[in-house]
Design a protein around this nucleic acid. Structure first.
Length: 497
RNA sequence: GGUCCUUUGGCCGAGUGGCUAGGCAAAGCUCUGCAAAAGCUUCUACAGCGGUUCGAAUCCGCUAGGGACCUCCA
């Protein structure tokens, strides 16, 4: 069985085949570093991180390109076009580059918290002005763009006459041409549907570059086309991003690249759905965002506590990437508990040792069920990255693992081969592919030694039925945030809350 | 207004026409010095109406609610 992904371009699941076997080129729209990342931003980065990990796991050499948009787009308020980054810079009395650096660092920090793998290339828009200008010149020479007063616009009407503009986003060109909205530069455009490739910079505009059309700055869509072409070629395998980017961003990208490179740039378009809050998209314009720093610290009116980045990652993986995911404090709290239980079972599993079992003692029904559940990990992943189903299967096995540890299920009731397979596949899917990791902060050797000492003392006390001492140890550790649990058979385990 | 999506048990959330996903919460029980975990059991839902079908949460239609995009947006 092979990997199938839902291609937004064709609106169906398709078998994934890369252009060059064994190599995959993947481009994902990265952040605009004019502000802090919020929960909604986390979704594509985690979703495509899992895809990247899986493609790699399948033996592909993947070049994963994720850009940083550090040149401002337009923020259209009324009729005044402003550069997002330079505007904020004035407010915060920072240099644009200082602002960009600050939020880029913060973004990298958050990605680290989520345990996402670094992209192979992380190009910045400002670092590729030359490429963008070259691309615009090419589009002009092809006859699909025109200059007006130092700005350059893409001729959508002409493009639509020869190519299917709107296919990705399901747009009808005639509708677009009738849009009545007043936008900046509208009077310069030949058609309302046209979009800017290059904008003339007003005198007060801080971010500006020299170009054949005077000083200005690039339009938003051109950066992705230019950088994707440069690092992945005229045609590449996967382009990912949030659903809200389908139009106009990705649609425009297709148009630009198609004219420039004379071919359809992307094989598989993949879009993650939105994270909602009270059923509404989380977004700046709705004023309902929860920043990642707030999430990790718990410092937000909607949050009753801080949430660990792994809880958030798990929360996101529990729903399918193409469904909306509704955020709430309760939903996240539920994920926290669930993840803890699953992870503890996983750690127990890794410590289980296969018993010398023979056909007589093996519970064949149980063994077969486990074999099936484990085999389905790949099946589910191949089915358009169905991480919720993989997790469901893992939860099916959690009680079995715990029961084996407690001796409620004899350890020789599943075959050694099955247990090894289980251990192996859990590790691959949970850690390597879904990118989950321990939330434990207790990997310090000295600390572990101290804990072992306390455990030993408590064991002695319990043997002597000195419950005052044993309770004191447990209670005071609890106050310090360390949970000590008695296991069956007199052993003790602990975890840092 | 146009285009499209969605509506699943107390909450979150999978669901490929038939064979009860899963998680959290809740209740009961078991284990246990106590506690916490853990295990077992219970809770069987698909917005409404109509249709297709031997059979529909799943397909079709209508109605109602919610949402997304059309403008910066993950």
């Amino acid at each position: 069985m092979s990997l199938k992904v839902y291609n937004s371009y064709t609106r169906q699941k398709e078998v994934f085949e890369s252009i060059t076997p064994g190599h995959v080129g993947m481009y994902v729209c990265g952040p605009t570093v004019s502000g802090e990342s919020h929960l909604g931003h986390a979704r594509p980065y985690i979703t495509f991180d899992v895809l990247y990990r899986y493609l790699t796991h399948l033996g592909n050499k993947v070049r994963y390109v994720r850009n940083i948009t550090d040149a401002g787009h337009f923020e259209e308020e009324g009729r005044e076009a402003e550069d997002k980054i330079s505007k904020k810079a004035i407010l915060e009395k920072l240099e644009p580059m200082e602002l960009v650096t600050k939020y880029t660092n913060l973004y990298h920090w958050a990605m680290k918290q989520f345990n996402t793998v670094d992209p192979s290339i992380e190009p910045t828009a400002t670092g590729h002005i030359v490429e963008q200008i070259n691309m615009i010149e090419k589009i002009i020479s092809e006859g699909y763009a025109y200059e007006v007063n130092g700005s350059v616009y893409f001729d959508v009407k002409k493009y639509a006459a020869n190519y299917d503009y709107g296919k990705l986003s399901g747009r009808v060109i005639d509708d677009l041409l009738e849009t009545t909205r007043e936008l900046d530069g509208q009077e310069e455009k030949r058609d309302r549907a046209d979009f800017a490739l290059w904008k003339h910079a007003a005198p007060e505009h801080i971010m500006r570059w020299k170009s054949p059309w005077g000083e200005g700055f690039p339009g938003w869509h051109i950066e992705c086309s230019a950088m994707a072409t440069k690092y992945l070629g005229a045609a590449f395998d996967i382009h990912g991003g949030g659903m809200d980017l389908q139009f106009p961003h990705h649609e425009s990208e297709i148009a630009q690249s198609t004219i420039c490179n004379h071919q359809n740039p992307v094989r598989y378009w993949m879009h993650n759905n939105m994270i909602t809050i009270n059923g509404r998209k989380m977004g700046k314009s709705y004023n309902n965002v929860i920043k990642l720093t707030e999430l990790f610290s718990g410092d937000h009116p909607l949050l009753s506590q801080a949430f660990h980045p792994m809880t958030v990652r798990f929360f996101i993986l529990q729903s399918h990437y193409r469904s909306t995911l509704d955020f709430s404090n309760d939903a996240l709290a539920a994920s926290e508990k669930a993840f803890k239980r699953l992870w503890e079972a996983y750690e127990i599993l890794q410590k289980l040792v296969p018993a010398d079992s023979n056909d007589d003692v093996i519970d064949k029904e149980l063994d077969a069920k486990i074999v099936k559940w484990v085999a389905e990990f790949k099946e589910f992943m191949d089915d358009d990255i169905s991480t919720p189903k993989i997790l469901a299967n893992m939860f099916e096995m959690a009680p079995i693992i715990n029961s084996m540890k407690d001796g409620l299920i004899p350890s020789d009731s599943i075959s050694a081969a099955t247990l090894l397979q289980m251990k192996d596949q859990f590790k691959i899917y949970l850690e390597d592919i879904m990118g989950l990791q321990s939330v434990s902060v207790s990997n310090n050797e000295a600390f572990k030694a101290v804990m072992q000492l306390l455990v030993d003392i408590r064991k002695e006390a319990k043997t002597k039925k000195d419950f005052a001492t044993s309770d004191k140890i447990r209670n005071q550790l609890a106050e310090a945030g360390i949970l000590l649990k008695d296991e069956k058979g007199g052993e003790m385990s602990w975890s840092v809350e």
